[in-house]
């Protein structure tokens, strides 16, 4: 049950990390210090998103796989379902984080 409980928080923690890193990358590229160029921003953000998305898909697959086990009781099944859904919402939200970097040509549109 301990692992299943963690399974609810892991995907959204990953989203939070991804959001923070994308925000930091945009800030690094768009603030007056201009640490990053647009190309570097795009490449880094895409790679970062891919890594995070794969991890989230892996966890969702793991949750679905565990869900097919017959020895789960009602409580464990509820936690597992919660974990799978947080995984799905987090995956969509992670992809949404990437959209500004992907669709905008520069910091100011």
């Amino acid at each position: 049950m301990r692992g299943l409980t963690k399974g609810i928080a892991k995907p959204v923690l990953l989203w939070a990390l991804h959001f923070t890193l994308i925000y930091a990358l945009i800030s690094a590229a768009c603030a007056p210090r201009a640490l990053l160029g647009q190309n570097h921003l795009l490449i880094t953000a895409v790679v970062l998103t891919l890594v995070m998305a794969i991890a989230q898909i892996f966890w969702m697959w793991g949750a679905a796989h565990t869900g097919r086990r017959s020895d789960l009781n009602r409580d464990e099944a509820a936690l597992l379902r919660a974990g799978w859904w947080t995984g799905l919402i987090s995956l969509i939200a992670t992809l949404a984080n990437l959209t500004p970097v992907l669709i905008l040509p520069g910091c100011h549109g």
């Binding site: 925000y23 939200a93 984080n97």
Partner: peptide, 19 residues
């Protein structure tokens, strides 16, 4: 704020409607 930042926050603000 830079438009790119605004769009990031706009995306997250829309996403919260799902849960």
């Amino acid at each position: 704020l830079p438009v790119m930042s605004l769009t990031l926050f706009s995306a997250a603000s829309t996403m919260v409607a799902i849960p």
